[in-house]
Design a binder for these strands. Structure first.
Length: 197
DNA sequence: AGCACGATTAACT
DNA sequence: GTTAATCGTGCTC
């Protein structure tokens, strides 16, 4: 099997660059030899203990340890008592940072995704961070998994780049009690719908 | 040992 | 627009 994985160097740089450039790449999970996944169309950057929107604001804990580790690994965490979220660890080892994968456009394993998201119309299959984890059956077992390892069954692969005109930025979503400037800092990156037509 | 809260979602009114 | 579901994590006592 030939792989076209993003290299560890892709992840080993400023998290904002990774979040911008991970757009359009293909998130892939292999289940029993079957490819399941899609193009990443939305991502958010979280970096440093100073970033009060980032889990690493709590410092090094059992939960955040993965974010301090080698770039190119998965940081998968559980929240709201029922949801899993997938992140890719960024920047040099020792600096806590990650990119949250917030949405994908399904391209592979459509029948499997459909079966896991059957109660919803296609538009809503993978348009949220917990939804795409459910669609790809990603859970805590993938925390700390190496996305760059040859033979990895969860990885991100090369795909056509998304031009600047097709990318919009904005504030990260989902947190309430986060002070400025972290509340409004535009670290959310999104592919405009027109580019996907 | 107990508690408040969360990088959300789906199903309500 | 509002709210229940549901539990690991990190903080306080």
């Amino acid at each position: 099997m030939k792989y076209n994985l993003l290299t560890r160097e892709f992840y080993n740089r400023n998290t904002l660059q990774v979040a911008r450039n991970i757009l359009g790449k293909r998130l892939v999970k292999i289940e029993n030899g079957v490819r399941i996944g899609g193009l990443i169309v939305e991502a958010e950057a979280y970096r440093g203990e100073e970033d009060l929107g980032c889990h690493a604001k709590a410092g090094r804990t059992p939960r955040t340890e993965v974010m301090y580790g080698e770039p190119g690994h998965a940081y998968v965490y559980f929240t709201y008592g029922m949801h899993w979220m997938l992140n890719a660890v960024c920047e040099q080892k020792g600096y806590p940072a990650a990119v949250l994968i917030r949405a994908i456009l399904p391209t592979d394993g459509i029948p499997v995704i459909a079966s896991r998201r059957n109660s919803q119309p296609r538009k809503f299959w993978t348009d949220g961070p917990a939804k795409l984890c459910k669609a790809l059956a990603i859970d805590g077992n993938f925390n700390a998994a190496d996305l760059c390892a040859p033979g990895a069954n969860l990885y991100i692969e090369q795909a056509d780049p998304v031009p600047d005109w097709a990318v919009t930025t904005g504030p990260r979503v989902g947190f309430n009690n986060v002070p400025e400037p972290w509340l409004s800092i535009p670290w959310r990156f999104r592919v405009v719908p027109e580019f996907l037509d």
